[in-house]
Simulated scan of single mutants.
Amino acid sequence: MNQPFKFLMIATLASPMSWACSYDGQFNNPFTESYPGALDVAIATQQAIEQQSIVAPPPLEGSKGLRRVTWWLNLLEKMSLNLPKGTYIYLVDSQLWSQYETPNHIAIHVQPPKDKSKVVQLTEATLHNLINKRLTYKQALDLELILET
């Protein structure tokens, strides 16, 4: 992995735990950790893209990017992953928090958990590959593209 990309990835992921995601146009402090394990998920994702195990989606920013990822998260929720009610889903690259509330409902753009709730961490690239059936949830876990805590 080249050095400028590593720095950019670390700067993107290292931010205070707040509800502001990259779709809000917020600048994040590059010297604080976004969430424990997030950097590992991002690095595993970048390696999988470089090894062509998964493909990166075309980049979208702002409201277009938020609409796309919202659609993908709603499709993910319909995939019968047996996630317990209350599970948080954290997209580490956009720092977007969502929460699986009930069957057939996921809340998008929520506050991060304040307790020891279950958290599923992944990137938009992993989500894209799950939705497009290029990767199963188990494969993503095995490749460390998803981290459950």
Rank of each mutant, 00 (worst) to 15 (best):
M1K: 10
N2W: 10
N2L: 09
N2M: 09
F5N: 11
K6T: 10
K6D: 05
F7Q: 14
L8Q: 11
A11Q: 13
T12V: 03
L13W: 01
A14Y: 05
M17P: 08
W19G: 08
W19Q: 12
C21R: 01
C21V: 02
Y23V: 02
G25N: 05
G25Y: 04
F27P: 11
N28D: 06
N28W: 08
N29G: 06
N29P: 03
P30N: 05
P30D: 09
P30R: 08
F31M: 15
S34Y: 01
Y35R: 09
P36S: 11
D40H: 08
V41H: 00
A42Q: 00
A42M: 07
I43N: 07
I43H: 10
Q46M: 11
A48K: 01
E50P: 00
Q52T: 15
Q52W: 06
I54T: 10
A56C: 10
P57S: 13
P57Q: 12
P58I: 09
P58A: 15
L60C: 07
L60M: 15
E61L: 14
G62L: 02
S63M: 10
G65E: 03
L66A: 09
R67L: 15
R68V: 07
T70N: 09
T70F: 03
T70D: 11
W72N: 10
L75F: 04
M79H: 12
L81E: 12
L83F: 14
P84G: 11
K85Y: 10
K85T: 06
G86I: 06
T87Q: 06
T87P: 07
Y88S: 07
I89L: 15
I89N: 03
L91F: 04
D93R: 00
L96P: 00
L96F: 00
Q99E: 08
Y100Q: 06
E101K: 14
E101C: 09
N104P: 05
N104E: 12
H109A: 14
H109N: 11
Q111D: 10
P112C: 06
K114F: 09
K116W: 07
K116L: 14
K116G: 04
K116A: 14
S117W: 05
K118T: 13
V119R: 00
V119D: 07
Q121H: 03
L122W: 00
E124D: 13
A125D: 12
A125F: 04
N129L: 03
I131P: 02
R134M: 11
L135G: 00
T136M: 03
L141V: 12
L141R: 04
I146E: 02
I146R: 01
T149G: 04
T149R: 12
